[in-house]
Amino acid sequence: MKSLITIFFLLFISQVSRSQNQTYLKEANGRPILGSVKSDVIGSPLLFKHFKVGVVQLKNGKSIKDVPLNFDLISNTPLFGKAGSPPLAFIDPVAAFSVQDTSSNGVTTVQYIFLDNDVTPSCYKVLSTGKLTLMKKLWKIVWEDKPYNSATITKNVLEKAAYYLQDPSSKKLTQLKPSKKNVLAVMADKSTEVQQYLKNNSVNFDEDQDLMALFTFYNGL
């Protein structure tokens, strides 16, 4: 009798999932999770176009190597891939993960930290560490647009980002709006050296690579 009830329950859940017309992910324990993007939305909620192999640090202190990784930037869900299966959500809470990334400077290891000290847990890309740890908060939203005199609503996934400084000891985050004035203010203790760096190097404060180089220089003083 219990087996029959279980079958009817699973069929009911399956029907509900299909009627909501949403994609879903499965945790390793098999519990279905509704995805963050419906089928009528243009764009992907994922951090990477393709899963990248990397290392995961769990909050319990354990680490897992050589895992195909990604991150849902709308639902803020760390994901891992498994051959022949849909993406899975981690059962154990994730603290951070790192992947290999290719840039103009070659292949580097990029670290992402999953912090839950916000109202909503978020993913941060670590750009530079040291006296001033520079991180880039990453998230995505679904934006609805209805053109003038049109009955059609277009839904698109938009990328959002903001820069933060993290105190190495307290781990407190402070938002930073990158500009020459604001950066010089937080690097006031090495003002002479930083001013000389800015004279010798063209720095675009809207570019991650330029900010990384500047903060790496400062953290090395």
Rank of each mutant, 00 (worst) to 15 (best):
L58P: 04
P121Q: 06
S85A: 14
V107G: 06
S128V: 04
F9K: 04
S63M: 14
R18C: 14
F48C: 07
K38M: 09
V119K: 12
L221T: 04
P86E: 07
T102D: 14
Q196L: 14
P32S: 09
Y124V: 02
M187I: 00
D72R: 00
T154Y: 15
P87V: 01
F8E: 09
L176P: 04
P178L: 02
K137Y: 11
E144R: 11
Y163W: 06
D66I: 06
N219L: 00
K180T: 08
D145Q: 12
V16D: 12
P178H: 03
S17H: 12
V37M: 08
S36T: 02
S17P: 01
D101F: 07
K180Q: 14
S150W: 01
D208V: 01
K199H: 10
L165T: 02
K171T: 10
L138C: 05
S170P: 14
D101S: 07
V107E: 12
T133I: 07
A213I: 02
P68C: 08
F48V: 02
H50G: 03
F90M: 02
A151C: 04
P68L: 05
K131Y: 05
T129A: 13
T192C: 00
F9T: 08
F205S: 04
Q175W: 00
L46Y: 14
P93H: 05
Q175V: 02
K136W: 02
T6N: 15
S39D: 13
L88I: 02
P45H: 01
I33L: 15
L69F: 11
G106N: 08
S44M: 03
L69K: 07
L214K: 00
L11Y: 09
G54E: 05
F217K: 05
D116T: 04
G84P: 10
S128I: 03
S36C: 05
Q20C: 12
P121N: 07
Y218E: 01
E207I: 02
V37W: 03
K171P: 07
K190F: 06
Q22E: 10
M187A: 01
Q175D: 05
L184H: 02
S103M: 08
Y124N: 03
T192A: 15
K131H: 08
N21K: 15
Y24S: 13
L127E: 04
P32G: 09
V119R: 12
T133S: 15
I5D: 15
I13L: 15
G54T: 01
L138V: 00
S202A: 10
G130P: 09
N76D: 08
Q57G: 13
F71I: 00
P147S: 07
T23C: 13
R31I: 12
D101N: 10
F80E: 05
F90G: 01
K155T: 04
I74D: 10
Q209R: 08
V16H: 10
L134Q: 04
P178T: 01
S14V: 06
Y218D: 01
F71E: 00
G106M: 07
K199P: 06
W139K: 04
K190N: 11
I5K: 14
N200C: 03
G30D: 14
F12M: 13
I141R: 11
L115S: 13
D101E: 10
A96N: 09
S122T: 03
K38R: 12
T108W: 04
V126I: 10
Q111E: 13
F12I: 10
